[in-house]
């Protein structure tokens, strides 16, 4: 057993509460995914503690998205043990929300904004049932949290990239989960959308939820997140920003592709 798993707290009325009663939202060991011959993610161990907000950072093709998809079982893992809240994903799906990359779907699909958000209520609506007015009200509420309530009846193809990303976030909010896994939520969005998304994610964190984002913009990592995982097929570093987001770990992750001046800028940003 690891030392922190043995930690026990004693409550005011004398009950002993093990830290195991609040298991880690996501813990992976040895996660390995391969497309064909070449591994995309190789033997990654990672822990995402409850209430944390983690950026997964690395160069293009480093396996950031694949890591999330492997953890969620969307791509097949060659090896690895994955635990959501200490249990297999099958048993904990209800507590996990996922936002795929915006560019991964066909926005010409015949659906309105409200239809997409209600997809997040799938498990709540249940098999062989249709969404009712109660579900529609919930979806509108989620849309208003991302400032999109006026677009409920708009066809999704008529939205800007930033608006589409907010719709995806609203769908994740509809899932009312404990853990939010987002793949590049800030890719190709306008400044207003970026601000709106960060605000919502920080609200989630404040409410005790756990957030994990695949993120590509090194300059905003320390402003938006409190933890970071650097990955380039293998995990390069993981931990609080101050420890894991250093010139050495970045250099190791990007293999010398970052200029020294860029790294200095990042250090200034995080200082």
């Amino acid at each position: 057993m690891t030392p922190d798993a043995q930690l026990e707290l004693v409550t005011a009325d004398g009950r002993r509460v093990s830290t195991e009663s609040a298991p880690c939202p996501l813990e992976v060991r040895g996660l390995t995914v391969s497309y064909g011959e070449k591994p995309a993610v190789f033997s990654v161990d990672a822990r995402f503690p409850s209430g944390s907000m983690t950026a997964i950072v690395g160069p293009n093709g480093a396996g950031k998205s694949t890591f999330l998809k492997g953890a969620l079982g969307i791509v097949r893992c060659l090896a690895g043990e994955i635990r959501f809240f200490g249990r297999p994903f099958k048993e904990t799906r209800r507590d996990v929300a996922y936002v795929p990359q915006r560019a991964s779907v066909d926005w010409d699909f015949p659906a309105r904004v409200i239809d997409v958000v209600m997809m997040g209520l799938y498990r709540e609506v249940g098999l062989f049932r249709f969404a009712g007015s109660r579900h529609r009200a919930r979806a509108i509420e989620c849309l208003s949290r991302v400032g999109m309530q006026d677009f409920a009846d708009r066809q999704i193809g008529q939205l800007s990239g930033g608006q589409q990303q907010r719709v995806f976030l609203a769908r994740a909010l509809a899932q009312d989960a404990e853990l939010y896994l987002l793949d590049e939520p800030f890719a190709g969005v306008d400044a207003a959308t970026e601000h709106a998304i960060v605000t919502v994610l920080k609200e989630l964190k404040a409410a005790g939820k756990t957030v994990v984002c695949v993120h590509h913009d090194l300059s905003t990592v320390s402003a938006y997140f409190d933890r970071v995982m650097l990955i380039n097929m293998r995990k390069q570093a993981e931990g609080p920003i101050a420890e894991a987001f250093t010139p050495e770990t970045l250099q190791a992750t990007y293999g010398g592709r970052l200029a020294a001046s860029q790294i200095d800028e990042l250090r200034l940003g995080s200082a």
């Binding site: 998809k69 079982g73 969307i74 779907v105 799938y122 498990r123």
Partner: peptide, 12 residues
């Protein structure tokens, strides 16, 4: 049909 990755994460 719209979003296979999301569907799989939902357990479909």
């Amino acid at each position: 049909t719209f979003d296979p990755g999301f569907a799989q994460a939902l357990g479909i």
